[in-house]
């Protein structure tokens, strides 16, 4: 399958390991991974902060970069960016775009997937041949859980990982408190939410807290790092791309 990889602006710039892992994983599963070089950002931050005129060029760029019919699926290691493409681009296009943008948005929306739903729903792959001999807990990010409805797809993928010690996170479905600019505008309420999330993570005694969004992991990981907790965060793709022949080796300082 010819897959258009969307790195997301955050992943491309700040968390490239998660995107590398996504690219390598999809290639290892036998797919042709293309990276349209003109891609930048889906515009989610703009829309969620209340700006709908400003991201019109971003929405247009996304539709143009991935609109090519030779790209059969657009895959991204982010539930919230996939949610933005599937639910917000049409709002922006409807309100401030033209007919061609609306058509472009509809075309791309129909073939856009978050990584775990692409693996499970489209490729019908739960066991992706991963090996990860560590104690792991999974935090379902809000947009993957309630906007995309990925359900237990990430858990199905994790359960199939060789040698993993997967432990359930108490109150898993409560928000970590990130919420994009929410964590800046309402930093103190966000921190209160983060504290409770970290308490629950600590209770699992996991080495790794994983999720499908680098943004939420940046938030949780930033908090865990501040308290020197001994648990690190790792994107789901980094667990799924680790194998016996090329196991996971930590590279980044804080995640």
């Amino acid at each position: 399958m010819r897959i258009g990889l969307f790195a997301t602006c955050l992943g491309d710039t700040l968390f490239p390991e998660a995107v590398k892992s996504t690219a390598v994983l999809l290639a290892r599963l036998g797919h042709d991974v293309v990276f349209p070089p003109g891609q930048t950002c889906c515009g989610q931050m703009h829309v969620n902060t209340g700006y709908q005129r400003e991201p019109v060029p971003l929405v247009r760029n996304f539709a143009e970069q991935f609109g090519d019919a030779s790209i059969e699926a657009v895959v991204m290691p982010s539930g919230s960016c996939a949610g933005s493409v599937r639910h917000q681009h049409e709002i922006v296009a409807e309100r401030y775009g033209d007919a061609s943008l609306r058509a472009g948005v509809a075309t791309v929306k129909a073939k856009t997937y978050e990584l775990s739903e692409f693996l499970v729903d489209v490729l019908d792959a739960e066991d992706v041949g991963a090996y990860f001999p560590h104690r792991v807990t999974y935090h379902p990010t809000c947009h993957s859980l309630r906007m995309l409805r990925v359900g237990d797809k990430p858990l199905k993928l994790l359960r199939a990982v060789d040698s993993i010690d997967l432990v359930e996170l108490p109150e898993a479905d409560s928000c970590c408190g990130f919420g994009g600019t929410f964590a800046v505008k309402n930093a103190e309420t966000s921190t209160a939410m983060l504290q409770d999330k970290m308490r629950n993570i600590a209770g699992t005694d996991a080495e790794v807290c994983t999720a499908g969004d680098s943004s939420c992991l940046m938030h949780i990981g930033g908090g865990l790092s501040r308290i020197r907790s001994g648990t690190r965060t790792l994107h789901l793709a980094q667990i799924l791309s680790a194998t016996r022949t090329s196991p996971y080796v930590p590279t980044e300082a804080v995640r």
Binding site: G11, K20, T191, M218
Partner: peptide, 28 residues
């Protein structure tokens, strides 16, 4: 590689979260 203080408006964020310094190389 930890950033522990950020200027406004991000100071509320850095009050309770470390931020990783940007990596050497982007994905692209």
């Amino acid at each position: 590689g930890r950033i522990s203080h950020l200027p406004p408006p991000f100071n509320g964020w850095s009050e309770s979260r470390d931020t990783a310094a940007p990596p050497k190389q982007t994905f692209r």
